[in-house]
């Protein structure tokens, strides 16, 4: 391949790039920094590594957006590839949450647990489904609708509507995170902290990783908001938006499982079998 004009196939051949090497070095720095922080409390290496990772995300994806905008690189087959790739990434994320749900059930179901304990452990008062979790469920379900409205508007060429509803979706994400932060603050002060046993461990890691994914999805949607504003997405070319919407739906579905299994079932009398038996 000499130049794009002479390209004899529809695929995206990429020039050599320093980002992968730098990104990997950033991850290595962050990993070493994390170990040093956890054992000595010295956090500067960790912060530096994290900053480098963020810089990699910024620089690398800026380059990808540039390629998406140049009208040459992202042919139809390349777009298909990006869609497949992103769906596979979501599949791997599902399996990551699978581990934490497994942890939840292993700890709470007497038939799976090898340690004769109670659920929740100790005298912890579990977090129920009413109040903030219920509100957050409504917020996320609503945001799933708003992102779909935005998508339809985008496909129909109604850019203004697409921009507004994408913005509303991102805003709902921020509101969700605000409520979750308040819930955590309340729980830590009044009910249980991370180190209070298996129930808090499984609760905070499952809901915490979900919250992190909401944050990532919100940032993703915010990027889409600015790209829509900049006229970078058209009715036929908006892979970035599509991926953000898929990601958002994935985050939504994980939340529904969390709401049903962690907040509702996990605090209900079904999960108290040990206590009843004992």
């Amino acid at each position: 391949m000499s130049t794009q004009a002479h390209k004899t196939h529809p695929y995206h051949m990429q020039e050599p790039s320093g980002w992968p090497l730098f990104g990997s070095f950033a991850a290595l720095t962050m990993a070493i920094g994390a170990v040093v922080y956890m054992h000595t409390g010295f956090y500067l290496v960790l912060v530096a590594g994290f900053a480098m990772v963020l810089f990699t995300f910024f620089g690398w994806w800026r380059m990808v957006i540039g390629e998406a905008n140049n009208g040459v690189d992202h042919t139809e087959p390349v777009k298909t590839g990006l869609r497949i790739g992103f769906l596979l990434f979501i599949a791997s994320e599902v399996m990551f949450f699978f581990a934490f749900f497994w942890g939840w059930f292993h700890s709470s179901l007497p038939i799976l647990n090898n340690v004769a304990g109670t659920w929740p452990n100790g005298d912890i008062k579990p977090m129920g489904p009413g109040g903030i979790p219920m509100l957050n469920t409504l917020i996320l379900l609503t945001s799933s609708v708003t992102v779909t409205v935005a998508h339809h508007a985008l496909v129909e060429g109604d850019r203004k509507t697409a921009i507004n509803w994408t913005g509303i979706t991102a805003l709902l994400g921020v509101i969700f995170l605000g409520f979750q932060a308040y819930e955590y603050w309340h729980l830590v002060n009044h009910q249980f902290g991370l180190s209070d046993g298996i129930y808090p461990s499984a609760f905070y890691l499952a809901t915490g990783f979900h919250g992190f994914h909401v944050l990532v999805g919100t940032i993703f949607l915010t990027v889409c908001y600015f790209r829509l504003n900049g006229g970078q997405m058209t009715p036929n070319a908006h892979i970035g938006f599509e991926a953000a919407a898929w990601y958002w739906h994935f985050v939504d579905v994980v939340w529904l499982f969390l709401y049903i299994n962690v907040y509702w079932w996990g605090s209900s009398s079904f999960a108290h079998l040990h206590k009843v038996v004992q």
């Binding site: 700890s107 090898n114 304990g117 100790g122 991370l194 180190s195 209070d196 046993g197 298996i198 461990s201």
Partner: peptide
């Protein structure tokens, strides 16, 4: 960070 996934004293389970 003192979670208890695999720690029996906190209700966790090494078999997990």
């Amino acid at each position: 960070f003192h979670t208890a996934f695999f720690e029996p004293s906190g209700g966790g389970d090494p078999i997990f």
